Amino acid sequence: MKTDFTSIPVVDIAGLSGTAEEKATVVEALATAAQDVGFMHVTGHGLDPALFDALLAQTKRFFDQPLDEKMKVYIGNSTNHRGYVPQGEEVFSAGSKDLKEAYDLSRDLPATDPEYLAGNPLLGPNQWPDDAAFRQVVNAYYNAVFQVGCRLMGGFALALGLEENAFESRLTRPPSQLRLIHYPYDPSAHDAAGIGAHTDYECFTLLRSTAPGLEVMNQKGEWVDAPPVENAFVVNTGDMLELLSGGRFIATSHRVRKVAEERYSFPLFFSLDYHVRVQPVVPVADGLPAQSLVAGEHLAAQTMQTFNYLKQRVAEGRISLPESHVGLSVFGQEARHGRRGVSIQ
Score class of each variant (00 low, 15 high):
S7D: 08
I8C: 01
I13V: 10
S17E: 14
E21T: 13
A33M: 05
A34N: 11
G44W: 14
L47C: 05
F63H: 04
Q65Y: 04
D68T: 07
K70Y: 04
T79D: 07
R82F: 04
R82Y: 02
Q87K: 09
F92N: 15
F92R: 12
S96D: 14
K100C: 07
L105G: 05
R107N: 04
D108Q: 09
D108F: 15
D108A: 05
T112I: 02
G124P: 11
N126R: 03
D130N: 11
A132V: 07
R135D: 06
V137F: 04
N139Q: 14
F146L: 05
G149Y: 09
C150D: 00
L152Q: 01
L160V: 02
G161F: 10
R170F: 12
T172D: 05
H182N: 08
H182I: 05
Y185A: 11
D186E: 13
D186T: 03
A189I: 03
G194N: 08
I195T: 09
T205D: 09
R208Y: 06
S209M: 11
A211D: 14
P212R: 08
G213N: 12
E215G: 13
E222D: 15
V229K: 15
E230K: 09
F233R: 00
M240A: 08
E242K: 10
L243A: 13
R248M: 09
H254S: 00
H254P: 01
R255E: 08
K258N: 05
F266R: 09
L268N: 11
L272I: 10
D286T: 00
L288Q: 10
L288Y: 05
A290V: 15
L293C: 15
L299W: 05
A301D: 09
Q305H: 09
F307R: 00
L310S: 01
V314R: 03
A315Y: 11
I319P: 05
G327K: 12
S329N: 14
V330P: 02
